[in-house]
Amino acid sequence: MDALYAVVVGFLFAIGVYLILQRPLVKLLLGIAVLGNAANLMIFVSSGARRLPPPLIPDGEKVVTTPIADPIAQALILTAIVIGFGVLAFAVVLVHRVHQTSQIDGFDELTEGVGTE
């Protein structure tokens, strides 16, 4: 099962990179979204994805004694999800703006001087 997780993570990375390498601006945005998910998933499975109860301390107790899912990885990923969305939102608007001012379809046409006249 773990090997399968690793392969899926690698697949998502491959798709993300492939999308980023494509010429159309739209694909770049899709690639960023896929890469974000791939990275989060990678941290998650690296911390040992098992069917364990969430990291909560039961009512009436001070510490948790039974096995729980790794809270550190979850905290990291929670941050990453939100930041990833911030990056994507900024990228979406930036790409939109680039297209609006310079009428280009892909980044290869984005050279010095385009859109500044």
Binding site: G10, A14, I15, M42
Partner: peptide, 13 residues
Amino acid sequence: VGAAMTVFTLAAM
């Protein structure tokens, strides 16, 4: 990249 990340994930796990 995918292959490298797969191996990396396996190593991390």
